[in-house]
């Protein structure tokens, strides 16, 4: 990320925080960054993943189907990955949240289907299984992770390459547990996009 991009990203995030109480205003800001991400702007995708996660933009759609908090968090991570992978299909003629809620509904339904078919997985194993299932080759993954913004890279490296627990990741990076989880989730989503050739 260039210095200029980083500065514009910071400005954008500050605008998002200022608009957080105003759905209309927030929606416009998100729509703008989503359109740039859909057009292949890598910085915009990082910002988009951040805002979807930080402001739980997918939550209302997830909560229409998912009751348990842990399940909702899991589906939210799936949604982040799906957003990173498929943002290219967002055409920008509807609101991003409309598109996002359709994605989230699909992920929630997929979660229900998994839950119906299998016994509840141990959370951590299900988690690790998810990233390895999208892995092509080890070196491709390493490249993808090396290409992550630093903020997310360390967390993903510790969690997915170092196989540490979230608690250990948090401790190592001096973060609280939720922040550590969020960084891993966002980093994975971006790495997944890289692996799928979404740029």
């Amino acid at each position: 990320m260039s210095g200029r991009e980083a500065a514009s990203s910071r400005t954008w995030r500050a605008a998002v925080e200022a608009a957080a109480g105003d759905r209309e205003d927030l929606g416009d800001l998100v729509d703008a960054v989503a359109q740039r991400a859909a057009a292949g702007d890598r910085t915009a995708l990082v910002d988009l993943i951040w805002v979807v996660d930080e402001h739980h933009l997918a939550r209302p759609a997830i909560r229409r189907l998912v009751v348990q908090d842990a399940d909702a968090e899991e589906v939210e991570q799936d949604v982040l990955i799906a957003v990173a992978e498929t943002i290219g299909s967002f055409r920008g003629d509807a609101r991003f949240t409309t598109w996002l809620h359709a994605v989230a509904r699909n992920k929630a339904i997929a979660h229900l289907r998994r839950r119906k078919e299998t016994d509840p997985l141990d959370g951590d194993e299900g988690d690790a299984a998810r990233i390895s299932s999208m892995i092509a080759t080890r070196s491709a993954v390493d490249d993808a992770i090396r290409g992550l913004p630093e903020l997310y890279r360390d967390a993903v490296v510790l969690r997915d390459i170092g196989q540490r627990s979230y608690a250990e990741v948090a401790q190592e990076l001096g973060l609280n547990l939720n922040t550590a989880k969020a960084r891993v989730a966002r980093g994975r989503a971006l790495a997944a996009a890289e692996l799928r050739g979404v740029r």
Binding site: R23, R91, D93, A94, R95, T98
Partner: peptide, 14 residues
Amino acid sequence: RSTADDDPYGRTSV
């Protein structure tokens, strides 16, 4: 009230 659910079918092109 909501702008998120304007098009629950997500199929309108404008």
